[in-house]
Design a protein around this nucleic acid. Sequence first.
DNA 1: GCCAACGTTGGC
DNA 2: GCCAACGTTGGC
Length: 152
Amino acid sequence: MNYWLMKSEPDVYGIDHLMRESNKTDHWDGVRNYQVRNMMRDEMKKGDLAFFYHSNCKPPGIAGIVEIVRAGYPDFTAFDPESKYYDPKSDPDNPRWFMVDVKFNKKFKRFISLDEIRQHPQLREMLIVRKGNRLSITPVSKHEWDTILELS
DNA sequence: GCCAACGTTGGC
DNA sequence: GCCAACGTTGGC
């Protein structure tokens, strides 16, 4: 079982959106970065847990937890010319992009801001606080996971 | 809105 | 295969 952190812009799709989905589940579409694609395709498994991170907002930080309820499968928005994520180079017979399904697990009573994460001695190694890290999904160690849960 | 830190593209 | 130009991300 692995732990992750998944970024999303709350103005576009935040944890409150996921809460309101039917069955509180949705697919995590639109990833168009190869490193993240590889993680979703090869490493993220059903039953894994992830922090739902709000980016590009004030303040950025972790809002809650989601569960991976379906492992990597082809991102069908890449095949849809009407989608903003359309990619004509992704062939349905050999898909270029993948996604996972996530289900709302919990919203933290207390939002854990990026600033708080940055200040915490046990969280200095988190990829999210590394300069220049722009990956929309990053792995989280068990120790980091537990530390943030204690804060929440 | 700015801009640093990337990743991608494409000419050569 | 190099690398300049361009596009994107995301904190500030």
